[in-house]
Design a protein around this nucleic acid. Structure first.
Length: 310
RNA sequence: GGUGCGAUGGCCGAGUGGCUAGGCAAAGGUCUGCAAAACCUUCUACAGCGGUUCGAUUCCGCUUCGCACCU
């Protein structure tokens, strides 16, 4: 298909398609990308791993054949890609894509990764793996309180505002303090990074009940398509954060014998619903998002065209 | 027909003459490198009607419903 719109603006456009899990954003993104004869870059924190196509609902072979995709099943689960690493890699890839297209489509449900791509992070130490591991060890041995106290000593300003009950936040702050030798708070500017492209965000909005119903049915479909076998094939990788994923953890518990197979499936459904709810909480914050009815490809194309002509 | 036991929030479930058990589900929210992660908040119920009492979800009576047993 030929491009139906020319970009009169000198800046290229990144069309971000977002929405909760099971909202049909992949279909919409493929339709949009196909219409504009362009490519898709995934903003999903799990779909870039190999060996987990069913549970992470990666695009189908047909969809991949229609539109070239990036960051889909292109690395092993052992090669974990953090949001920061994703920001760097995805920006590089986008530069290549914008050399060939004036519109590129991004799709995915990971709010943090979308923000990393569109707004960027501050420059914080990147290789903190060892520091983190040490902190995790201390967390389990000394407890959260000890780490909170250390954070207070190293960065009282951040200590005053963090969620002190959340180990993940405490560990991350300490990790940055220790790795950089500077307080985390002085390095957090929360400033949006300048990007060489414009962004339009299109959200797929569902009625909650309907979405939950879709999610439940989609899980049944995944099970019918072999989710259990897929989970078994990555069972030995369960300790990796790439496998701390809805659809796998529940089956791991089933393999352990702590829950039944039926129970695992029910939990996959419930956890998928909760995930969708959290995604919506995240997405609602961005008031610049255009919310579309499900399957409203025409509406999406109209908005994009308007952006390009403006 | 009789006797006994029971009736607690969407569900499970403990308990008490005055002091919102708890769990699950759900809803709302937080979010700058594990994010499909991690974490926070909210949801004051005691079947109905009377009675006793300063005060009843808790005690008494009746009614309704459920379960069990007897005839």
């Amino acid at each position: 298909m030929t491009p139906t719109t020319t970009n009169t603006n000198e800046r290229p456009l990144l069309v971000v398609v977002l929405g909760p899990t099971g909202s049909g954003k992949t279909d919409l993104a493929v339709a949009i990308a196909h219409h504009f004869s362009t490519e898709i870059i995934s903003t999903d924190s799990r779909q870039f791993y190999k060996g987990m196509p069913i549970g992470t609902a990666q695009p189908t072979a047909e969809q991949l054949a229609i539109v070239p995709h990036h960051f889909i099943a292109d690395r092993l689960p052992e090669e974990e890609l953090s949001a920061g690493g994703y920001e760097r890699e995805a920006l590089e890839r986008l530069e290549e894509l914008f050399a060939r297209h004036n519109v590129v489509v991004a799709v995915g449900g990971s709010g943090l990764y979308i923000d990393a791509l569109c707004e960027g992070f501050d420059d914080l130490p990147s290789d903190t793996r060892e520091v983190r591991e040490e902190l995790m060890r201390r967390l389990s041995e000394e407890g959260l309180e000890a780490l909170v106290e250390e954070l207070r000593a190293r960065d009282e300003a951040y200590w005053a505002v963090v969620d002190r009950k959340n180990p993940a936040r405490i560990v991350r702050a300490l990790e940055v303090c220790i790795a950089s030798g500077l307080p985390y708070s002085t390095q957090r500017t929360a400033q949006k990074r300048e990007r060489p492209f414009d962004v339009v965000k299109l959200g797929v909005l569902w009625d909650r009940e309907e979405l939950y119903d879709r999610i439940n049915r989609r899980v049944d479909m995944m099970v019918a398509n072999g989710l259990e076998e897929e989970a078994r094939s990555v069972f030995h990788l369960r300790h990796l954060s790439s496998l701390q994923t809805v659809g796998y953890r529940e089956f791991f518990d089933y393999f352990d014998g702590t829950i039944s197979q039926e129970g695992a499936i029910e939990l996959v459904k419930r956890n998928s619903r909760r995930y969708a709810k959290r995604q919506m909480t995240w997405f609602r914050r961005d008031t610049s998002t255009y919310w579309l009815a499900p399957n409203d490809t025409a509406g999406a194309i109209d908005i994009i065209r308007e952006k390009l002509e403006k």
